[in-house]
């Protein structure tokens, strides 16, 4: 019975419209990140006085943030799984783990950037670095936004429980989180790995 109720919340007309709208927002975001990747690839070789990608990146630490974000995506999927079972506390728990991992990711990224800046790789040093910070910064900002958004939703989940209002919101937030993860997979491959090849 309880499985039904969350599904019913998600199948409600307004919820279905919200989810569809969110998919079109994802379509728009694909263009946004596509253009940012295009900019990055166009100026990748224009390193001027600054370091080249190969000199700059430290793969081991990037690997760590990648694992952190991938795991957060997994815990997010688990949270939605419990949401479907209408298990309030478990949903809450796994979303909490998700945002903590998200915070860890942001922390790692800030540390990485400060390290680069200390090495003299500033945003204005070269076109490559400008595009790099623009792309990574936009992604990092999305992660931060996701963390804040999901925390607000968790407060609502705590206060109101799983109902017609909270269930679709949490589901959409999970879509957002997975999408950020997809973008990170592409960043990891195109920016970091190929930058090291």
């Amino acid at each position: 019975m309880e499985t039904m109720s969350t599904q019913m919340h998600l199948n409600h007309k307004q919820a279905q419209m919200n989810i569809l709208a969110f998919w079109f927002l994802i379509g728009a975001e694909v263009v946004v990140f596509g253009c940012l990747f295009g900019i990055y690839l166009a100026v990748k070789s224009l390193t001027g006085q600054g370091p080249t990608p190969n000199e700059l990146f430290k793969l081991n630490e990037i690997m760590l943030s990648t694992v952190v974000l991938l795991t957060s995506s997994f815990t997010c999927a688990i949270a939605v799984y419990f949401l479907n079972l209408s298990k309030k506390l478990l949903t809450l728990l796994f979303f909490l783990i998700t945002i903590l991992l998200g915070l860890a990711f942001i922390g790692l990224e800030i540390r990485e950037f400060t390290l680069y800046v200390e090495e003299g790789a500033k945003i204005s040093t070269s076109a490559f670095l400008g595009a790099f910070y623009l792309l990574l910064g936009t992604h990092g900002f999305h992660v931060l936004f996701g963390v804040i958004w999901i925390s607000l939703l968790l407060v609502q989940l705590w206060l109101k429980g799983i109902n017609q209002e909270t269930a679709p919101k949490l589901f959409i937030a999970s879509l957002y989180w997975h999408f950020i993860d997809v973008i990170w997979v592409i960043i990891f491959t195109i920016v970091y790995l190929i930058g090291k090849v």
Partner: peptide, 14 residues
Amino acid sequence: GTVILSASEGNPLI
């Protein structure tokens, strides 16, 4: 102060 669109260091065609 990024220089992506600068004529000397970046590429204005972007």
